Computed example of a mutant assay.
Amino acid sequence: MFDDLPPDLDRLHTLRVWHTLWLQRIDAKIAALTRRQAEEERGRRNRPAPPEWIVELGIGERRPPVQVHAGDCYLAGTRRRPVDREEARRLLTAGLTACGHCRPDSTLGITELSNRPTLTAAAGSSAADGGISSGRAMADSAAGPTAGRTQGWSSYVTKIQAAPQPHVEPVGTRWQPVFVKHEA
């Protein structure tokens, strides 16, 4: 029989104390993990149900509502509050924008919302401009579809190629960049 334990009594007592301490540490860890798992399970059971509808709130002092979302919509921002079905219907019929992903207007059975001005655009718009709240949007639409566009990537690349490219050459005792114009 292979016996790897020490032959004297003092060392055997030391090993016994050492292993008793390790068993106590292991038992304490097992108890802590058991308590933690029980708390997590209790938290899962007692978690409140997610709201059926969410209103995304804007930025500012009064934080006006911006969009209506379904309760599980992942596009809803972090500034939000839960609302019930009636308030969601009331906000949508008042002109608040519906989320384009979760489509709460179709889920709530509200149709023909596209021809109404939005609630958020009412601050800077009038009925004469069709609900457009920014003057830049009106100017862009009046100037035509190509207003404000660049000439395209090819002209940009041509300008880059024609620009002087840095080239490092030794000048005196230091290396200094020297601009060399490449002929296209």
Score class of each variant (00 low, 15 high):
residue 152 G to Q: 10
residue 120 T to L: 03
residue 8 D to I: 11
residue 81 R to A: 01
residue 58 G to C: 02
residue 66 V to G: 01
residue 104 P to E: 02
residue 94 A to E: 05
residue 67 Q to E: 02
residue 101 H to L: 05
residue 150 T to E: 02
residue 123 A to Y: 02
residue 37 Q to Y: 00
residue 106 S to L: 15
residue 112 E to V: 04
residue 155 S to N: 04
residue 100 G to Q: 04
residue 88 A to H: 03
residue 14 T to P: 09
residue 69 H to I: 14
residue 32 A to D: 02
residue 176 Q to M: 09
residue 59 I to G: 00
residue 102 C to Y: 01
residue 184 A to K: 10
residue 75 L to G: 13
residue 153 W to T: 13
residue 36 R to H: 06
residue 156 Y to S: 12
residue 81 R to G: 13
residue 177 P to F: 08
residue 77 G to L: 04
residue 122 A to D: 12
residue 158 T to L: 10
residue 5 L to M: 14
residue 63 R to D: 01
residue 67 Q to T: 04
residue 98 A to W: 01
residue 26 I to T: 15
residue 22 W to I: 12
residue 86 E to P: 08
residue 68 V to R: 04
residue 175 W to V: 08
residue 142 A to F: 03
residue 163 A to D: 11
residue 10 D to Q: 12
residue 107 T to A: 13
residue 163 A to V: 14
residue 172 G to T: 10
residue 160 I to S: 06
residue 175 W to R: 14
residue 52 E to S: 12
residue 80 R to G: 01
residue 21 L to V: 15
residue 79 R to T: 12
residue 175 W to I: 02
residue 3 D to E: 09
residue 101 H to T: 00
residue 179 F to I: 14
residue 115 N to L: 15
residue 126 S to L: 06
residue 137 A to R: 11
residue 158 T to C: 13
residue 129 D to S: 13
residue 146 T to I: 05
residue 132 I to S: 14
residue 59 I to P: 05
residue 77 G to S: 13
residue 66 V to E: 06
residue 11 R to Q: 10
residue 102 C to W: 06
residue 176 Q to I: 10
residue 3 D to P: 12
residue 75 L to Q: 14
residue 145 P to L: 11
residue 106 S to N: 08
residue 97 T to R: 06
residue 133 S to P: 07
residue 116 R to A: 08
residue 67 Q to D: 00
residue 162 A to Y: 10
residue 175 W to E: 02
residue 49 A to S: 04
residue 7 P to M: 14
residue 59 I to T: 06
residue 87 E to V: 13
residue 42 R to I: 02
residue 29 K to N: 05
residue 154 S to M: 05
residue 176 Q to Y: 02
residue 4 D to F: 09
residue 42 R to W: 00
residue 24 Q to S: 07
